[in-house]
Each structure stands twice: as structure tokens, then as C-alpha cells.
Design a protein around this nucleic acid. Structure first.
Length: 822
RNA sequence: GGGCCUAUGGUCUAGUGGUUAUGACGUCUCCUUUACACGGAGAAGGUCCCCAGUUCGAAUCUGGGUAGGCCCACCA
């Protein structure tokens, strides 16, 4: 076979992608008898393109998938896209220039579906281009009928088991998106605000001061609290105060939730400013006064301010308070506030009817489940526990949005009793399908209205282990697929996706969704900060794959430790590219010298061959162990250092002479070299294959594929340690050779002469034990140092690194050396 | 305020009780050798964040600082 001069990743990577696709190289065999390795692939949110964080974390999972496949397991590696709910709505609104609030639900939904269909092929194409070895036929979307059925079924089951409830209660609300959201969708933003001290007039005369950052909540003020132990204010308890500007009276009460040290120590309670307000409201049976509408404006109770947006109302009210002399101190502050993570809008707490999954009573069980998972790295579990311990709300699963999976629910017009669809009739959209019952079982009335709300996207994506595996429902393998082996994901969504999946599996099946959780880190901007569009520091993986190669991008992803963030550095792509080139060249050199290799073992191995083979066993052992616990970067490091330092820099240099000057060697020595070279190159390619699937496939087909009779390196078996190759004596012997070689190279380098400069006499001083070893490798020592003669003498000046051996070099040449070209 | 993680030559990084402290990039010197100059051989460059302790011995273990990051809570 004529080997190309250079490796052209741009063409060859695409070539191999098409070959893999044609040959179904990564197809999951559902009739397999092999051990299974099942992966709960994260479904990326369908946006225009894969971003660099995706290329980073999906590569890491792919290393594991390819390794496990080579280990001989049948890898179940599906691919899904998450494409419903708010992120998708925002994407479609942006791309199509529409507003969902100005469209009918059915029009908007069909526009969403149409847009998703347009985006899907090139979006998924990016993952394929990166060489991700999913079986892309095991494909799902969290909005398709299959997912709808499973998601709605989950709701129905939880309703039947009493875990779902619908209740009018204070709910976290985003005025911008105009929907209820859940605790997990909150994040902190530091915003500028004003801290205002307000004068409340006591009914009995005099004033008290109350500090607030939200004076616009005054119309909804329903109570005032002081701490029961606060001696300053004991006399106030039971009295009434007049709310400034709005002039209604509220009662002052004692409650331990009021802090003595915050603000003035007197706090007002409004329905609802924050979480504590809800607690007071419930504990003291306070009146409900709603000051803020669902779209973030003031209600009628705000009187003159009704209809104004919150921020405008706040400003006006402060001005009016000031001019009325009701403000005693005002300062600008920065404080962190809860905002909706999708749109950065400050959230409100609004009284509304929502669906919840009741789970606060199960915190202990969830902690228990979390402890049963094998976490990689181990410490990531504490993030889950931290989250569970901090849970304060049941899971609100209803969203007042258009594009999502509908609740399969109707309500009796008369008594509001929910009628939930039968699990057999799913999926269903109640807006399009009539209520399945004729009469309300509670009141007998016969008119119903459909639920308009849709499910939280996490209520669906938390079912991915069911969604992907149920694609095989009805086949014998189905039962074996779930629970799954591995959940790979990044650390930022432990409290979302990981926790929610744990919850659903527990509630439905009382099992763990997977045995292992491997948590990856983030690829950061070169400066060490998060990449984000707003900072303008986003790097495109598509451009990098074009400029370098998919393999190089994967190499970068392999260099970070599991779970740790890593700053992006372009030089890693250069290092990856160099490795790719080196592999190509090393194999290109080896192949012609393997010409006569026919699989026959030599009757005796040359020592240098045993040295390289023995060292290889250590690498296989360490690399495999690391891979089994998802420490792919350690695995790569092992292979890298063996390949560069032992194989290329030394073994190949030493063994060359046997190919160039065959006459100086016995047949056994030649056969030994060929066998060893074949074995080493094949093993190296296999060890690199999970990381660099394209170049290893390319190089494998130069020669090895013909001997191995397996049409892809990715279908060959992972190297196993062959204990017979462990050879301590040869290892030491080879190390001695390399050490002496290194001294000679150093000498020549210092003399500024070529490493090929002949050595007239190589003087060595050492113990008898080493003399014996050196005798065994004399031929290799002479050829690799270009020495004419080896002399044991005390005429030496340089010690070796690792051994008690000293070396002296006499340059020059008394007669032509046979191994040099003329 | 709580939890967790991190701190190693200019940069990134390996290293869970004894190493001359790893490798890569960068810098400098040399070598154009029939796999590769996207290569090879060398060199320079480190108070392993600080303090205390455990130990014969600490980059590594313990405690206390300092700095950074992530998650959570508070947000009167």
C-alpha cells in the first residue's frame, strides 16, 4: 500500500465519518448477549449550534463509551435533544421574530416544531463531526410523542399515587416570562438598590422606623414584626401602626423570624415580598393583599400607582414618601436578589394555582439514594446533599407557557375537580381532545375546561433513562437497559437534572436511575472566567475543528481531570495536532518494516524488544485502571508518555538498525523486531483510539486491519496485559541502554555536533553486574550511539542518570562504520 | 452565613509520606539524521500560597490563616 506523504485531517476525518455511518460501526445490537454498558446521554438543549462546552463534555463521555466498547461490552449510547419549554420558545421567538404571547398556542407550537425540524440536522451534525460514537438511530426529542407519552404517564402515575397536587398558594413567579418557575430556576444577581428607612405612625402616637428595599410593596403590607426578645420594642407588640402613604393600619406582632440586628429591628410583612413573608402569612393568618400583577405591574390597591411597572412605581413612591417627610435616611446599596436564570428578571411571589410534586417529606430518602450512587469524583455528592438539605418548596411543575408538554388534565367547570387522562390514552393535548368522562365524579356536573398549562421541562428531562430505554420496549433487552450504568453530566446541573432524575426514579420505581455518575467540569475562557455571549469570549468549536481537527479538539478535552474546570488554551490544540502527526509518521515508518510480518512469534525476543514490551504492559495496566474509574486524562497521559518517550524517541531509534542492516542480525532478531513492532504499534493505536478515533482508524488501515480482520479499530478489543511480557531484567537492561545513550547524546549536543557523529571509543566504567547487561545489548548500544567500539575502562567523566555507570566518549573514526550510509 | 473544591517554574499542569518535583507550551543553544523540523538532543527557569503541628522524613497528612472558584442560603 502506498502511504500518503502527509495526513490531511480535513478530508480524512470526513471520510472516516462516512465509513462509520455506512458500516454502522457504533450501532447498538439489541440482540446482544454481551455485558451492557448503558449511558444516559445528556440531551443538549437544541440551539443553533453545538457550543465549545458541549464539545468538551461530550468528548469526555465518548472516551469512556469507546473504551467500554473495546472492552467488549455492548454500549447503549443514545442521543436526544432537549427542545421544549422556555429556552426553545426564546430561540424560536428570536429566530422567527415573533412573540409567543401574541400568537395562538397552536400556531406558536407548530412554528416551534417547524423551526426545530429545520435546526435539528445541522445541530446533531456537529456531534457527529466531533466523532461522538452515539448510535444516532437511538434518537429522541423531549417534545416528540414518545417523550410526551412517558412524561404525561409520569404525571398520571404520580397523581394516582397521591404525589401530585394542585393548589392555590404563593408561587415563585417570573413577571417577564409570565410563568411560575421552580426553586432550581433561580439564581442570584447583584443589583443596585436603595435602602429606605420609613416612618410608620403609631396609632397611639409617635413613629417607628422600618427599613425596606421594596417600598412599592407598602400597599400589600399586612403586618409588622419584632423579635420577641427585643427589649427595645417589647412595648410595641399588640399596637397598631399606620402604613405610610397608604394609610391602612396593621398590627405589630412578635415573631422569632424577625431579626434584631437587621435594619432597624422592625420589619414589615407584605404578601409577598419574600419567603419569610409567606411563613408569617401562614403562621399568623394574615390578610392577603396583592400589589403586583402577573405581568409585573401594580394592582388597584396601589391606588395612584396602579398600572405602573414595579421599578417605576418604586421610584415614584420613594419620591412621594420623601416629599411627605416619611423618609428618615436613604442609602444606595448593592445586594443580591433572586432572578430567573433564563431572563435575569427579578422574581416575584404570586398567589396562583399550580401543580406540585410533593417531595419535601422525602428529603432523607433522597439523601439515602444519593449515597448509593458511585460518584466520580466522590466529592461531587456533597453538592447534591447540600441542595437537598436546602430544599424549601415542593417541586412546582406547571408552567404558563405555550410550548411544552401539556398536562393531560381537564377541570369540572362547577367544582374545579381535576379529571386526569387514563395512562393508556397518552399522549393527549386537552386543548384538542375532549374530556374523557361525561360527568364529574364529585359533583355530577357535565361541563369541563382543559388545563392550559404545560409541564416544566425538567419534569420531562428527568425521565431520560426511561425515554431512551423505552425505545426498546417490547424487545427482550428492554428489561436489562434500566437502571442504567452511567450518567455523565457537568457539575452545574447536579441540583437540576441529576436530582430530578433521582427523584423520578425513586417515586416511580424505587430504584436508582444509574449506578455511576461521572461529573465533568467546564471549559473556561483563557482568562479563567466562564464563557458567555455577553462577555464576548465565546469560542466556536466548528471553527476549531475546521482549523485544526476534531481529534485535536478531543485531545484538548482529554487533558483535564474529571470534574475540574479548565481554561481554554489554544496551544493544547497544537499539542493535539502534533500528537496526531507523530502517530501518523510513526506508523508510516513502521509499516514498510512490517512487510514480512506474518504473526509468527520469534523463538526468543531480543532484549530491547522485551524491554519495550514489558514497559507496554505497565502502560496498559495503568491506562485501563484509570479508564475504569472514568479518569480518562490519566489514561491518555500514560499512553502519551509511552508513545513519545519510550516508543518514538528510543525504541524506534534503537530498532532501526535491525531493519537497515539486516545482515548484522540473525533471523530470530529480525522476527523479534517485526513481531514487537507490530504488537507495539497496534497496542498504541488501540490505546489512543478512544481519544483520537480518526487518526487511529486511518493508521490502523495502513497495515494492521488486514492482519486483524476487524474492519474498524473501534471494533477491536482493548489491549490486555500479557503477564508473560513482564520482564524485569530486560527492563533494567533497556534502561541502562537508554541511560548510556542519553549521556552520549548529551555529549554530542554539548559539542554542537550531529547525533550521528561517529564515536571512536565509548568508555564505560561500571560494576560487573552491569557489564554483563551491557554485553547483552552491545550491538544496539553501538548502533544507536554510532560507536565503533565499547571499552570498559576508567577513562570516563560523565555519570549516568539512574545507574552507577560512568561514560566517556571519544569522537572520531578509525574506519568506516557499516551502519552509516555512504 | 453554610457546604465543597483549588493554590506547584512565565503560562497550563502531573504528583495521596522518602523522586535530582512530572509533562506540555514559551525562552535559549545545538543538530538539517533514509517516520516526523508539527522533529531530535540539550540548557536555563520552582521559598511546591503563608504559619504551626504530626513524623527520622511533608508538595503530599492535621490544624489555623490568606487568595480564588463553584453551589446553596440570606437579601429588613
Amino acid at each position: 500500500m502506498m502511504l500518503p506523504e502527509r495526513y490531511d485531517p480535513k478530508n480524512r476525518e470526513l471520510f472516516w465519518l462516512s465509513v462509520w455511518e455506512k458500516n454502522n460501526t457504533y450501532k447498538f445490537d439489541s440482540s446482544t448477549k454481551k455485558e451492557l454498558f448503558t449511558i444516559d446521554t445528556p440531551p443538549p438543549t437544541l440551539s443553533g449550534m453545538m457550543h465549545i462546552g458541549h464539545s468538551y463534555s461530550y468528548s469526555q463521555t465518548d472516551f469512556v463509551a469507546r473504551f467500554q466498547r473495546m472492552l467488549g461490552k455492548e454500549v447503549f449510547y443514545p442521543f436526544g435533544t432537549d427542545d421544549n419549554g422556555l429556552p426553545t420558545e426564546r430561540l424560536v421567538e428570536k429566530l422567527k421574530g415573533v412573540k409567543s404571547s401574541e400568537m395562538s398556542r397552536s400556531d406558536f407550537v407548530s412554528l416551534c416544531l417547524k423551526t426545530l425540524n429545520e435546526l435539528h440536522p445541522s445541530f446533531v451534525g456537529d456531534w457527529k463531526r466531533l466523532g461522538i460514537s452515539c448510535d444516532f438511530n437511538i434518537l429522541y426529542s423531549t417534545i416528540d410523542d414518545h417523550s410526551r407519552r412517558i412524561s404525561q404517564r409520569s404525571f398520571v402515575e404520580l397523581w394516582n399515587s397521591g404525589r401530585c397536587y394542585r393548589k392555590e398558594s404563593p408561587t415563585i413567579w417570573c413577571p417577564e416570562c409570565q410563568t411560575a418557575i421552580s426553586q432550581v430556576e433561580l439564581k442570584d444577581n447583584v443589583l443596585k438598590s436603595q435602602f429606605v428607612n420609613l416612618k410608620f405612625g403609631l396609632e397611639s402616637g409617635g413613629n417607628i422606623l422600618i427599613a425596606t428595599t421594596r417600598p412599592e410593596m407598602l400597599p400589600a403590607c399586612v403586618g409588622i414584626f419584632v423579635h420577641p426578645d427585643d427589649s427595645r420594642y417589647k412595648n410595641l407588640v399588640g399596637k397598631r401602626a399606620r402604613v405610610p402613604l397608604f394609610k391602612h393600619f396593621v398590627t405589630i406582632r412578635a415573631d422569632p423570624r424577625a431579626s434584631m440586628v437587621k435594619g432597624t429591628g422592625i420589619v414589615m410583612c407584605c404578601t409577598f415580598g419574600d419567603q419569610t413573608d409567606i411563613e408569617w402569612f401562614k403562621a399568623h393568618n394574615l390578610e392577603l393583599k396583592i400589589a403586583i400583577t402577573r405581568d409585573g405591574k401594580m394592582t388597584e390597591i396601589a391606588g395612584a400607582y396602579a398600572g405602573l411597572k414595579i421599578m417605576i412605581a418604586r421610584k415614584k413612591i420613594v419620591e412621594d414618601l420623601k416629599s411627605a417627610g416619611l423618609v428618615d435616611g436613604l442609602k444606595d446599596i448593592e445586594h443580591s436578589v433572586n432572578v430567573h436564570e433564563r431572563c435575569n428578571t427579578e422574581i416575584e411571589i404570586i398567589q396562583s394555582k399550580q401543580w406540585f410534586i410533593k417531595y419535601l417529606d422525602l428529603k432523607e430518602k433522597f439523601l439515602e439514594q444519593g449515597r448509593k450512587i458511585n460518584w466520580y469524583p466522590e466529592y461531587m455528592r456533597s453538592r447534591l446533599e447540600n441542595w437537598i438539605n436546602g430544599l424549601q418548596w415542593d417541586w412546582c411543575i406547571s408552567r404558563q407557557r405555550h410550548f411544552g408538554i401539556p398536562f393531560p388534565v381537564w377541570y369540572c367547570v362547577k367544582c374545579d375537580e381535576p379529571i386526569v387522562a387514563s395512562a393508556k390514552k397518552l399522549p393527549v393535548d386537552p386543548l384538542e381532545t375532549g374530556c374523557p368522562v361525561k360527568k364529574c365524579s364529585k359533583c355530577g356536573y357535565s361541563k369541563f375546561v382543559p388545563e392550559k398549562d404545560v409541564l416544566d421541562t425538567w419534569a420531562t428531562s428527568s425521565l431520560t433513562p426511561r425515554i431512551s430505554t423505552e425505545l426498546f420496549k417490547g424487545k427482550p433487552i428492554f428489561k436489562k437497559l434500566y437502571p442504567m450504568t452511567l450518567r455523565p453530566q457537568a457539575h452545574d446541573i447536579i441540583s437540576f437534572w441529576l436530582f430530578n432524575t433521582l427523584v423520578k426514579s425513586f417515586l416511580h420505581d424505587n430504584i436508582l436511575p444509574w449506578n455511576d455518575a461521572a461529573i465533568s467540569g467546564w471549559l473556561l475562557a483563557p482568562t479563567g472566567e466562564k464563557m458567555s455571549k455577553s462577555k464576548g469570549n465565546v469560542i466556536s468549536p466548528q471553527v476549531l475543528m475546521e482549523q485544526y481537527s476534531a481529534d485535536a479538539l478531543r485531545y484538548l478535552a482529554a487533558s483535564s481531570k474529571l470534574g475540574e474546570d479548565m481554561p481554554f488554551q489554544e496551544k493544547m490544540l497544537v499539542t493535539g495536532t502534533k500528537t496526531i502527526t507523530k502517530i501518523f509518521n510513526a506508523i508510516k515508518f513502521s509499516v514498510p518494516n512490517l512487510g514480512a510480518y506474518d504473526g509468527v512469534k520469534p523463538s526468543k525476543f531480543s532484549i530491547v524488544d522485551s524491554w519495550a514490551l514489558s514497559k507496554l504492559q505497565h502502560v496498559i495496566e495503568a491506562s485501563t485502571e484509570s479508564f475504569l474509574v472514568y479518569e480518562y486524562s490519566k489514561s491518555l497521559r500514560e499512553v502519551d508518555s509511552y508513545f513519545w518517550q519510550i516508543f518514538c524517541d528510543n525504541y524506534l531509534e534503537i530498532v532501526k538498525d535491525r531493519f537497515y542492516n539486516k545482515n548484522n542480525y540473525s533471523d530470530d532478531e529480525i522476527v523479534s523486531a517485526q513481531f514487537t513492532l507490530y504488537h507495539l504499534t497496534l497496542s498504541i493505536l488501540k490505546l489512543y483510539a478512544p481519544f483520537l478515533p480518526h487518526i487511529t482508524e486511518e493508521a490502523y488501515h495502513f497495515f494492521h486491519s488486514g492482519k486483524e480482520n476487524v474492519d474498524s479499530i473501534h471494533r477491536t478489543s482493548w489491549p490486555v496485559v500479557n503477564k508473560r511480557f513482564f520482564d524485569k531484567e530486560s527492563e533494567e537492561c533497556g534502561d541502562v541502554l537508554v541511560d548510556i545513550l542519553s549521556v552520549v547524546r548529551k555529549f554530542k549536543s554539548n559539542k554542537h555536533v550531529s547525533l550521528k557523529t561517529p564515536v571512536k571509543e565509548l568508555h564505560i566504567h561500571c560494576e560487573d553486574l552491569h557489564k554483563e547487561l551491557i554485553g547483552k545489548i552491545e550491538k544496539e548500544l553501538k548502533s544507536s550511539t554510532y560507536s565503533e567500539k565499547i571499552v570498559f575502562s576508567k577513562n570516563v567523566d560523565t555519570p549516568c542518570d539512574r545507574f552507577a555507570i560512568e561514560v566517556g566518549v571519544v569522537l572520531g573514526q578509525s574506519s568506516p562504520i557499516s551502519s552509516l550510509p555512504s
